Computed example of a mutant assay.
Amino acid sequence: MTDDEPTFKALADPTRRFLLDLLFQRDGRTLTELESEVDMSRFGVAKHLRVLEEAGLVVTRRSGREKLHFLNPVPIRLIHDRWIGKYTERRASALADLKHELEAQHMTATDTADRTVQVYRVYIRATAEAIWEAITKPEWAVRFGYRAPVEYELRPGGAFRGLASEEMKAGGAPEVIIDGEVIEADPPRKLVQTWRPLFLGEDYTRLTYEIEDDGSGVCRLTVTHDVTGAPKTAAQVSGAAPDAGGGWSQVLSDLKSLLETGRSLYA
């Protein structure tokens, strides 16, 4: 079975696609909330959600006694980067931009603000140490995603700075475009920090990286971004903003490619 076969199989069912649509509209729903939207038994909905979770398209989190379900768009981004990116990127992007523009006419600020917690997950054939280095070291950060250096003081209370890439500076961007503070640093397993894009004029959000290594040679990287009260930031990191690129999905897809093949997808 290829890496993307579970994704294709999960997306083949219309009920599962509808459940993903519901989570796209508002993330972090319980089984009860999702069941109320589908003409199906609770057991049937749970079974579909389990297939989506096994395919990596849904990530669950516990909040007290509740189990919340989050849409994880990274597997879909990986398919995009494997197939569309090679052959029809320009035409597909034009269609996607048109679709986004038409949908945006029917969206309100509340639609974006409702997605207060975003969860992204990717499996990378690399060591936990390599993934940690790629996230926290400036010499790695310039090789994937937005190619912008980062500076960390990896201790509680330490400073974080996201610097402008050379391309951004050529366009007139200031040296520091994102700032924050380290809350918890447990290399190579967990990094918790605040995160604020200075150009959006919003308050700090909370960003968590979790790296899990089960000894199989493949690590699971989960990025949880709590963007409560910051709708512009929510749109930026999800890729919904017109100038956001692919957001976290694109960044993690590119990181996976770099660590597994030594090459960025967008070089």
Rank of each mutant, 00 (worst) to 15 (best):
S63C: 04
K190Y: 10
V237S: 07
D213Y: 15
Q250P: 00
W195A: 01
T228H: 08
A170I: 01
E260N: 11
I76F: 00
E167N: 08
A241L: 02
K137I: 01
S253A: 14
L49H: 10
G245D: 06
G247D: 01
R155K: 13
A267N: 06
R263T: 14
L68Y: 13
E35I: 05
P156E: 02
T233M: 14
Q105W: 05
R125D: 13
P14D: 10
D243V: 04
E181D: 07
F160V: 12
E54T: 09
A141Y: 12
V51S: 10
W195L: 09
G172L: 03
G85T: 11
T108K: 02
G245S: 05
R143H: 13
S165V: 09
D114Y: 08
D114I: 07
P73R: 04
V45Q: 10
V74A: 00
R65A: 14
L57F: 06
I177D: 03
A104N: 04
P174L: 01
R16Y: 03
Q236W: 15
Y209N: 08
R147T: 09
G44Y: 06
I124E: 04
Q105C: 01
G44F: 06
E260L: 13
K256Q: 15
E5G: 00
M40I: 03
I178D: 09
I131R: 01
P187T: 08
D4P: 03
G158E: 10
L163S: 14
T30F: 03
S165I: 08
L71H: 09
R125L: 04
L78A: 00
R26K: 14
A234T: 15
E202S: 07
E35H: 15
L163H: 15
P231I: 05
E153P: 08
T30P: 02
T233R: 12
Q118M: 14
W132D: 05
A104I: 00
K232Y: 08
E89M: 12
D111R: 04
Q236K: 14
D179G: 13
T60P: 07
D3T: 12
